[in-house]
Nucleic acid binder design. Structure first.
Length: 329
DNA sequence: AACATATTCAACCGCACTGGG
DNA sequence: GCCCAGTGCGGTTGAATATGT
């Protein structure tokens, strides 16, 4: 047992926990990374006997692991419906939104991201979001950082989702993008979000009833969206988000979770062209009539994937100096 | 190529809660 | 009401890997 094992003196369940620790030493239980053999043993056992009662499961399966360890391994890694890989733009947006609503309620947030585990979301938050706050020398819970997330990062994600969607439909005859200007005009509704005047020129959006004539230019690297490997905070993201791929839930699906997102049938969240939060925290009714000509869509395919979509320090600076905001958009 | 530093994420921890006996 | 096993959650760690010098 390491130093972290030291606990307080009058904790409920404390004895059982000490027993667990003791058992670990007595029974020579394994810890650390799981081997392929252990994984297979666990998978096979659960396939035959189901999950639950993890301590007895661990013993019955012949695994020299604690029940906790087995449960964690199964839920976070071995479960067949666990999604691995890059976090899509939509997922990032959802994480930001739900976190702003619920805070560090990772498991609750994870319920709304099918296939993602609380651990994964937590790691995403810590490594990507908190890192940015740290670099900016501000607290992740500070109003400044939250505002930047809400007013800048999230709208930008919406734009990128729009752009990605637009780019995927651009090739179809019916989507003859007649965008004449080098500016993409995207109308984005984010129901309860009210943007400060200084940002009102930023997003092509109707945020919280404030019609924002936001027409971001996509012509510069600084405001280009990165699509292949890096999100605005350097996160690995999917270049194109196909929600049908991620959320293959039938309309009126039978997920017992009442909070579970359903495809947009009037109460759900995602449709091909809209994003709606589960609780209507805010509502991304994306109007994908954003017109982007070839030049405007080019950036989606350009390979600069290495850096930020926008530099947070620049964003903060621009927030304080609205006059200069167009330097960044 | 070698080393240092940064980043990622699986796994662990303590703690709280629940339900059965 | 108490005890205890089981479970779940959020926070933290550290090995592996990536990146920079």
């Amino acid at each position: 047992m390491d130093a972290r094992g030291i606990r307080g003196a009058n904790q409920s369940g404390r004895d059982s926990q000490e027993d667990e620790q003791q058992a670990m030493m007595m029974e020579d239980l394994r810890r650390g990374p799981w081997t392929v053999e252990e994984d297979l043993t666990l998978i096979n056992y659960i396939a035959n006997h189901g999950e639950g009662r993890w301590n007895s499961l661990a013993r019955s399966a012949g695994l020299k692991r604690t029940g906790k360890s087995c449960r964690l391994r199964w839920l976070n890694y071995l479960r067949p419906d666990v999604r691995r890989g890059n976090i899509s733009l939509e997922e990032q947006l959802l994480i930001l939104e739900l976190h702003s609503r619920w805070g560090n309620r990772w498991s609750k947030i994870a319920q709304h991201l099918p296939g993602r585990t609380d651990n994964e979301i937590k790691n995403y938050w810590r490594t990507r979001v908190q890192k940015q706050a740290k670099q900016l020398k501000c607290d992740v819970n500070s109003k400044q950082f939250k505002d930047a997330m809400r007013y800048l990062w999230m709208p930008r994600l919406v734009e990128r989702i729009q752009a990605a969607s637009t780019s995927t439909t651009a090739a179809t005859p019916t989507s003859a993008m007649a965008a004449p200007a080098p500016m993409a005009t995207a109308t984005t509704s984010i129901g309860s979000m009210v943007f400060p005047p200084s940002l009102a020129s930023m997003g092509g959006s109707d945020f919280g009833g404030v019609q924002v004539n936001a027409t971001p230019s996509y012509s510069t690297p600084e405001n280009s969206c990165t699509t292949a490997s890096s999100d605005s905070f350097g996160a690995q993201v999917s270049p194109v988000s196909d929600l049908a791929e991620y959320y293959p839930i039938p309309v009126g699906g039978d997920n017992p979770n009442p909070d579970y997102y359903q495809p947009n049938n009037g109460q759900g969240c995602y449709q091909e062209s809209s994003l709606t939060s589960p609780c209507g925290f805010f509502n991304y009714g994306l109007d994908f009539q954003a017109c982007m000509d070839q030049n405007n869509t080019q950036w989606l395919d350009d390979g600069d994937t290495s850096d930020s979509l926008w530099n947070m320090e620049d964003v903060f600076y621009s927030e304080q100096q609205p006059a200069s905001i167009n330097n960044y958009y």
